[in-house]
């Protein structure tokens, strides 16, 4: 108790760091792309304390928000490639090129760990006059532009999921933009919008409490967090070619970082994400654990970028063709 209070006051003696001669020699800076309290922020702040003892250094995490993560990405890209600046981000940079948000993406960075993947699903207000994906499609087609879909801007998860849906069926709906899935799900419960494509983790508590209903699980397999909900591919096997798909969280360093530093970071975070408390947090929120690094992570990132870039391009919401950047069609 005394120690705790003293710690709260002093704060500088927190990490009992073992003595190390080589990397890391000093505090590491972790730049989080999204704001405090968001899911990227929560995941990063939850996993990093487990990695610190193995690194033997403190990781000072800062939120650098804005420009759908582009500002943090640019900042880390401008720092020296010495392994002392980590980019803690989500999937967004993989779409920057086609969305016209700059010429940088994760190809300029070395993945330390691609931690987990979210599972998209489609939820609706309880009063919506449909209960399944099939019914929704029929209702929407019978009442064009009347159903309000929440969205989070071009390139956000709802726009990609909608692009995926419209590649198979016609969906004439009205999109009402929100600045995140949190506010949009709030609006869904208040009836301001009717349907929202969201990530399972953000919607699961509302679904469990019966405040919203699941219309479709956009995945190729049933999810343990939502037993009894059939994946969308059962009725619409056409979606199988895109799935599994979902937003992800990862930690990156700039290309050119010394191997010694990269391997130290990879080792520390690979252990940290296996921590039982962290696994419980990830799975409790309905994310699928990935824990990828090296070539596996690179392959995952490339596949994700190829599938998603072409989806948004074919749906007409991209500003540039993926072809211009040499992104192959899946």
């Amino acid at each position: 108790m005394k120690i705790k209070l003293f710690g709260a006051v002093a704060a500088l003696l927190v990490a009992a760091a073992p003595v190390m001669a080589e990397y890391p020699e000093k505090d590491i800076q972790g730049v989080i792309q999204w704001g405090a309290g968001g899911s990227t922020d929560t995941v990063m702040r939850a996993v990093t304390p487990h990695a610190e003892p193995m690194l033997g250094a403190k990781v000072v995490m800062q939120n650098m928000t804005g420009g759908v993560g582009a500002i943090a990405t640019k900042f880390v890209g401008a720092q020296e490639a010495d392994g002392y600046t980590l980019l803690m981000g989500a999937e967004n940079p993989q779409l920057y090129k086609v969305m016209g948000l700059g010429d940088s993406d994760y190809a300029d960075f070395t993945p330390i760990n691609v931690i987990a993947r979210g599972v998209p699903l489609i939820v609706a207000n309880n009063d919506a006059p449909f209960n399944t994906f099939k019914e929704m499609v029929e209702y929407v087609q019978a009442h064009p532009n009347e159903v309000k879909f929440g969205s989070t801007g071009p390139g956000g998860l709802p726009s990609v999921v909608t692009a995926m849906l419209t590649s198979e069926v016609e969906l004439p709906v009205t999109f009402v933009p929100y600045d995140g899935d949190g506010p949009a799900l709030t609006a869904l419960q208040g009836g301001a919008i009717d349907v929202m494509p969201a990530v399972l983790g953000a919607a699961i508590e509302g679904v469990k409490a019966g405040r919203m209903k699941v219309i479709a699980l956009v995945d190729s397999a049933e999810n343990p967090a939502l037993p009894g909900i059939a994946p969308i591919t059962v009725d619409y096997p056409g979606y199988e070619k895109f799935l599994p798909w979902g937003p992800f969280f990862g930690i990156f360093v700039k290309n050119g970082t010394p191997d010694e530093a990269v391997s130290k970071l990879v080792g520390a975070y690979a252990e940290a994400v296996k921590n039982p408390d962290f696994v419980a947090l990830i799975e409790g929120r309905g994310f699928s654990m990935l824990n990828l690094s090296g070539d596996e992570a690179r392959a995952f990132l490339d596949k994700w970028q190829s599938v998603t870039s072409w989806l948004v391009y074919d749906a007409g919401i991209a500003k540039a063709s993926p072809e211009e950047f040499g992104i192959p069609r899946p």
């Binding site: 500088l12 990490a15 000093k26």
Partner: peptide, 17 residues
């Protein structure tokens, strides 16, 4: 080189503990 200094100090302190 602030970060190095702080790290070194923390190590000294924790080494002492």
């Amino acid at each position: 080189p602030e970060r190095e200094l702080i790290s070194a100090m923390r190590r000294l302190l924790s080494g002492g503990a």
